[in-house]
Design a protein around this nucleic acid. Structure first.
Lengths: 233, 233
DNA sequence: CGCCTGATGTGACCTAAATCACGTTATGGG
DNA sequence: CCCATAACGTGATTTAGGTCACATCAGGCG
């Protein structure tokens, strides 16, 4: 099943991190990158494993998760087409801080560690592009920490819907089962179902099997922007 | 009250990130760094503010927190003597991803943004040292996410005790009030008190006012390392 | 030494959300 | 077309842990 065929230059330009790079750099990247396919549910790499490579999502969705000793799984984020993940070879991280799992049929482009090490010496611009990706990741994680720590499950679900909605269409949609949404948010299916049916009754979303349509995204917005004017003197 | 006197070279050598740097580099750092003092509870910088500088803890403790719109506060970590925090000028982060607050009387060394920008061009080694700090932060945050998402409050308290214990003495101690511990862990005082008195009954810790002594740290260890041999066939 | 304030102990109560336990609805393959 | 299976809907029950309401204890200080 594994398809190790090469990566086309046009395909690389679809990835935001590379969009502004000059042609020859992308060309040299394409030469060393590898295409990989994964089946739904398949693990791409595991937390704690030796790290190094960089992964780019060409098609499908990848879930980044932490699994703790007690068996519970906490989703950290969902990587869509164009996103980059993997332990950063720029730092000297030895191990993957989390696991990556294909959520559906997935195609990835891999930049192997060795290839990256070579590129980075003669290509500081590339390094800068990737550093930026990592600064976003730091921000994202600190946001996850905030959300997990102080939001209600309902708010977390709303936030997740807004974050991962596909906005290319007039009606933003999310192509996830309740089960998968639940694992991303860090809760269980029943709670997601209940909350979604509630939202549907309010006319905020429409539920179909494996797909949620946002009819009124704004209604999901305020996590709790309680207008706290009451600064009692 | 603000004491802007200069920073001594010996003091910088106390900071792990600089310990292995050659003498002249540390000398040039000392020339541009600034000393600052903060009172207990005082905010050092706020989430969302313009970022840039790097901060090093010379004495006291600094709490890194996220405050969400609903007013709840989630502690991310506690910085002890020698630790480094602040938004990384290496990335192009515009804003602080979190706030920093002095937990007690605190002395900091500040490396201002401008100074750092100059240093980094002629000192790649320094950059590398700091990148390493940031890779640790990424790991820490992903750990926080895991812990918040899937551990019980009791486990989180235990973990916090182990993480922030001062191991220089035979009996590790934590110098925090229950209130402050609670805000670090992301819970309320009562829960911390209850759990600590429970631990004291079991002989695992000793409680004094503003101080907790770990009598048997190992008892705090397993978050839930349930020996799950039962791979039922 | 008595008072005030901040740090603790502890019970009663209450809510969010996880669990359990089903029933119902899609949907694709034979 | 039928059935297995995955996805969804919904109630009843349970529980961790947050909230409230006090009572106690320790240290500083006039």
């Amino acid at each position: 099943m594994a398809d190790y065929s090469s990566v086309k230059i046009e395909e690389l330009y679809d990835i935001p991190a590379f969009r502004n790079l000059p042609d020859e750099q992308v060309r040299s990247l394409a030469a060393v990158m590898v295409r990989r396919n994964y089946a739904p549910g398949q693990m791409i790499f595991m937390e704690g494993e030796q790290a190094g490579s960089l992964w780019f999502v060409a098609a499908g969705q990848v879930k980044i998760i932490k699994q703790s000793l007690n068996g519970r799984i906490q989703g950290l984020c969902l990587m869509n087409r164009g996103k980059c993940f993997g332990s950063c070879p720029l730092f000297d991280m030895e191990k993957n801080p989390a696991s990556a799992q294909a959520l559906n049929q997935v195609t990835l482009f891999v930049l192997p560690d060795e290839a990256f090490q070579q590129l980075k010496t003669r290509d500081p611009q590339l390094v800068k592009a990737l550093l930026h990706v990592y600064s976003q990741r730091l921000e994202h994680l600190s946001r996850v920490s905030e959300v997990l720590g102080s939001w209600s499950v309902a708010d977390r679900i709303n936030d997740c819907l807004l974050t991962y909605a596909d906005r290319t269409e007039p009606q933003p949609t999310i192509e996830l089962t309740h089960e998968k949404l639940a694992s991303l948010v860090g809760t269980v299916r029943e709670v997601v179902t209940r909350h979604l049916t509630h939202l549907e009754k309010e006319g905020v979303v429409r539920n179909e099997v494996g797909r949620i349509t946002l009819l009124n995204p704004n209604a999901l917005l305020p996590p709790c922007a309680c207008p706290d004017e009451t600064t009692t003197p």
